[in-house]
Amino acid sequence: MYNDKNSKKIVETIQNWARSHSVWVLAYGTGCGAIEIAPTMTSRYDAERLGFRGAATPRQADVMLITGYLTVKTVKRVVRVYEQMQSPKYVVGFGSCTINGGMYYDSYNTINLLDRYLPVDVYINGCMPRPEAVIAGLAKLQQIIREGKANGAEKYLENLEWYKENQRKIAPNWIAKAPDLNW
């Protein structure tokens, strides 16, 4: 009965509903965007009422917020943290810097487009995005989780070679034993 297509679909729907209403956020505070996380979580905007909650470690987290620009150095750490997370897992790109480099578009040591290194589910644009924008972005994430379209983890595994190649380009002598999804 469990392997029946329809009952699988029902189970999947319930699971996706639970996933969308319980999102544990790992805020990877790379850039200035991290300053907007505090008002989003605390009393004025209170993201916890929608089911968002801070996660202490990557193992427990569901969604990683990349809050701002990523330097070549931090990309390594971000990739490592992303691979430590347990799927299903999602990435939210935060601010203009993750979309096109923002004000650092011609810097020699920041990356311009986050999507080349990690599968991003939702972008929140703005410099800085206000807490209202953050909550709108997270609500969008909830919506695509509920529809079952937030499959970044599978996309990452399918196109692992392409992602690893891009990661190697910016950090040539880094990933010796990649792909290591267990860390």
């Binding site: 209403h21 319980s22 089911g51 569901d62 347990q86 799927s87």
Partner: peptide, 14 residues
């Protein structure tokens, strides 16, 4: 309860 159910329906756990 939602949190618990979500944790239970994680697909990977190393």
């Amino acid at each position: 309860f939602i949190d618990a159910f979500k944790l239970l329906s994680k697909t990977r756990g190393i």
